[in-house]
Amino acid sequence: MDLPILYSFRRCPYAIRARLAVAASGVAVELREILLRDKAPAFLATSPSGTVPCLQAADVVIDESLDVMIWALRQHDPLGWLDMPEVGMTLIEVCDGPFKSALDRTKYDTRYPECDAEEQRALAMGFLNRLDQQIGDKTGLFDDALRLADMAILPFVRQFAFIDKPRFDAEAGPNVARWLESFLDSERFAAIMPKLAMWREGDTPLIFAGAIEVANP
């Protein structure tokens, strides 16, 4: 059986969000873990950008993480992640644009000597404060269920938090802190974060549909 192939990298927040959606959908894919400093030729031949995640299905190659999420959920969306207000897409756009820019200039400040890391951190915290107000006393951004926007944004909040976790814990609003901790403690997150060996041509396929299974050779 030819399954879609999902090229991924465990710690990349873009790849994390893609795996979350694939797991939620229950759609089976072959998962291939890529080492970013030694990219497999088959991956480079597939991905137009050479970045993860990249999904190769029978009739399409999807090279953007949000598009991978939507592709999977349009196959099957048992948890109703696509059922969210339009503002959810706006929040994702801010996350992927200004927030990610500020995150990178905080985490990798030596790469951006023209930027002040503390100013960039303040910009990132401004977005987190907006999310804190959006969450309020709810479980998620919109209600007590998690939606596409929650799962698209949380991997980047995680990345930002662990730049300096004690400082994040001291400065983050209580609602966004609770939202993140619930995500980090969830079985859903644990299921998509196992450590995998780098994929090489000829390896026995790893089938991923919410959990990792080794395919019969």
Rank of each mutant, 00 (worst) to 15 (best):
K107D: 01
D104I: 04
P13R: 03
L154R: 01
T204Q: 13
I5F: 06
S101D: 14
D83Y: 00
L31H: 07
R32V: 07
R32T: 06
W199A: 01
N129P: 00
Y112R: 01
M84E: 15
T51R: 14
V94G: 02
D59R: 11
I192V: 15
I16E: 11
L148C: 09
T139G: 13
K138F: 11
I163Y: 10
A102R: 01
K100Q: 12
V61M: 08
P205E: 05
A170Q: 14
D59W: 03
T90P: 00
V68Q: 06
F142W: 12
V157W: 04
E213Q: 14
Y7W: 15
E86G: 08
A172K: 05
S47P: 06
E119G: 04
R10K: 15
I207K: 02
R32L: 07
I212H: 06
L141C: 09
R32Y: 10
W81V: 05
G136A: 11
V87E: 14
A190C: 09
A117E: 05
Q159S: 03
Q133N: 13
D83Q: 12
I5Q: 02
F142M: 08
R158Y: 06
G80E: 11
D83A: 14
N129V: 11
L79Q: 15
E33H: 13
R167T: 14
E93V: 04
L3N: 08
L3Q: 05
A172E: 03
K100W: 09
F142A: 04
A170N: 12
V157L: 12
D169H: 08
D132G: 12
G140R: 02
I62P: 01
V68P: 03
K107S: 06
K107R: 15
A23R: 02
W199G: 00
A209D: 15
C115I: 00
G140Y: 09
G126W: 10
A40R: 06
